[in-house]
Nucleic acid binder design. Structure first.
Length: 511
RNA sequence: GCGCCUCUAGCUCAAUGGUUAGAGCAGUGGGCUUUUAACCCAUUGGUUCAGGGUUCGAGUCCCUGGGGGCGCACCA
């Protein structure tokens, strides 16, 4: 550890007057030195607490005003507010669970200790021994006998009332955002509740949680541009995964029957209110099931997550109330498009008809696109934006679904669905294609598209085909964007509100 | 990548192109033993994102660059 002598840094040492940031830091650093000079440690190693603040409120929240108890407690947290009335100091202590007032009286603590309390700054961490009481006005408080500094904050907190509002600062300094913005803390509690709820639901259904490689030889399982990295010892490029799918289905071949993973995936694409380059995907695969089974599981997962995170299945989207517990509509993509254009649309139609339909509705297309791709583009342009309530859009054209099984009733379509909520895609699932011969043909189509210049197209994954050749049972598979579910339940419009440290450009200079 | 908006004290915000850029909070000094964003008195603190330009005069207008936001494009 390097300890610098403050005298070597006159910029910081000689600015204890004034009140700029540098002066404020210098003043607090001087206080630290003062404590050490007299033998006190401003950064002690540990503190034993008897209760969290939430536990205190739960147990004593109903005390009558003006009650003094004999109950000795030890609590710890950060000083958020201080109200100094002379010989009596009120402070607001915050821990993860709650905020509770400290009642610190000079007559109780003694003169010397009280002087130290006066020296505490907003932002300091303290451990407090005292008794539970309520004030005359009924505020639940800890009457402190000792207030021990646990960690001295050198940098001042943001505005005590307004908190942090500048989004740039909030996302860059998430630590400060979490300290002062209750809303930010709540969003991440919801996210946690969603993730743990998914795990509980899936464990109860007999799914095994697996961990599969992040570094891939081929970035398969989705259409997206990958990040490339390099392994020095093997001297080869590797791709960060863009999906979990292909490894999971290898495990189904291996006989694991029910697997899931909640993992980070990476897509080298634009950043927006709905996209972060790294995000969290839950994928699951269930042997002997098909798309209907995984649609049912989807409803159950999200509905249960709402119960666990919010205590209700009622949610509001764009001012409209919906109950997640009601069955979600299931409707074919071709039916959406047919409805939007006023006549029957299907990828089997002559390509010229579909192209003129695209032109008619202002949808630009490329000549290499087939009818299936055109139908999807029409759906995205004309229908996607109108879907508000949770909905399964089903029957994606085979052309755009290289890993999905063809619909048992329609060879142009697949047994595939996407979940849409508030115009956003929440997830995707299908009856898995398990015929190795057909899978090879689909891969070869992908490879042809890639060779023709489609940067997001896949290629032939020979190892995956070898796995299929051993035989994959009929399987239903599902992928859900966990960040999007968290957004839905937290009621926020930006994915950055549910990702602790979203991807940002580097800061020019930190002061 | 394109368009629009935005950036002022540690934080939250003011400031018709016109004195020396202000206020609240935080900080500092003083007062106060039941406060609740405590209060009262006094007070410190600025590279107005950066660099150019127009002007007698620029936080304000223009240009270039940077950060961020929103929209579009991209995005299974």
């Amino acid at each position: 550890m390097v300890v610098s002598d403050p005298s070597e840094n006159p910029d910081e040492a000689d600015q204890t007057s004034g009140s700029g940031l540098a002066a404020e830091k210098a003043r607090r650093l001087a206080r630290i030195q003062e404590l050490r000079d007299r033998g006190d440690e401003p950064y002690p190693y540990r503190f034993d607490r008897s209760h969290t603040l939430g536990e205190i409120r739960l147990a004593w929240g109903a005390l009558e005003p003006g009650t003094e108890t004999e109950t000795e407690v030890a609590v710890a947290g950060r000083i958020m507010l201080k109200r100094d009335t002379g010989k009596l100091v009120f402070a607001t202590l915050q821990d993860r669970s709650d905020q509770i007032q400290l009642f610190i009286s000079k007559a109780v603590t003694g003169d010397d200790h009280f002087a130290d309390v006066k020296e505490l700054d907003l932002g300091d961490w303290v451990g407090v021994h005292g008794t539970v009481m309520t004030t005359r006005k009924g505020e639940l408080s800890i009457k402190a006998s000792t207030v021990q500094l646990l960690s001295k904050a050198v940098r001042p907190l943001p505005d005590k009332w307004h908190g942090l509002t500048d989004t740039d600062t909030r996302f860059r300094q998430r630590y400060a955002d979490l300290i002062v913005n209750e809303r930010a803390r709540r969003n991440f509690e919801i996210r946690h509740a969603v993730v743990s709820s998914f795990r509980r639901t899936l464990h109860a259904k007999g799914f095994i949680e697996v961990e599969t490689p992040v570094l891939h030889l081929e970035a398969g399982g989705a259409h997206a541009r990958p990040f490339v990295t390099h392994h020095n010892a093997l001297d080869m490029d590797l791709y960060l995964r863009i999906a979990l799918e292909l490894h999971h289905k290898r495990l189904i071949v291996g006989g694991m029957e029910r697997v899931f993973e909640i993992g980070r995936i990476f897509r080298n694409e634009g950043i927006s209110t709905r996209h972060n380059p790294e995000f969290t995907m839950m994928e699951l695969y269930q042997a002997f099931g098909d798309w209907n089974d995984v649609m049912d599981i989807t409803e159950e997962l999200v509905t249960q997550a709402a119960r666990d995170a919010l205590g209700t299945t009622a949610i509001t989207i764009r001012g409209e109330q919906f109950d997640l517990a009601e069955p979600w509509p299931r409707k074919r993509m071709v039916d959406y498009v047919s409805e939007a254009v006023g006549r029957e649309v299907h990828p089997s139609q002559p390509i010229d008809e579909l192209r003129s339909l695209a032109t008619e509705h202002g949808v630009r297309y490329e000549d290499r696109w087939g009818g299936g791709k055109l139908v999807e583009e029409l759906f995205e342009a004309l229908c996607e934006g109108n879907i508000v309530r949770p909905t399964f859009v089903t029957g994606h054209p085979t052309e755009i679904s290289p890993l999905a099984r063809v619909d048992r009733d329609d060879p142009w379509l697949t047994e595939r669905f996407e979940i849409f909520v508030d115009s956003r895609e929440l997830g995707n699932g299908y009856s898995e294609l398990n015929d190795p011969v057909e899978q090879r043909a689909r891969f070869e189509d992908e490879q042809a598209a890639k060779d023709a210049g489609d940067a997001e197209a896949g290629s032939v994954d020979e190892d995956y085909l070898r796995a299929l050749e051993y035989g994959m049972p009929p399987t239903g598979g599902l992928g859900i964007g966990m960040d999007r579910v968290a957004m839905l339940l937290a009621g926020v419009d930006s994915i950055k509100e549910v990702i602790l440290f979203p991807t940002l450009r580097p800061e020019p200079e930190i002061s």
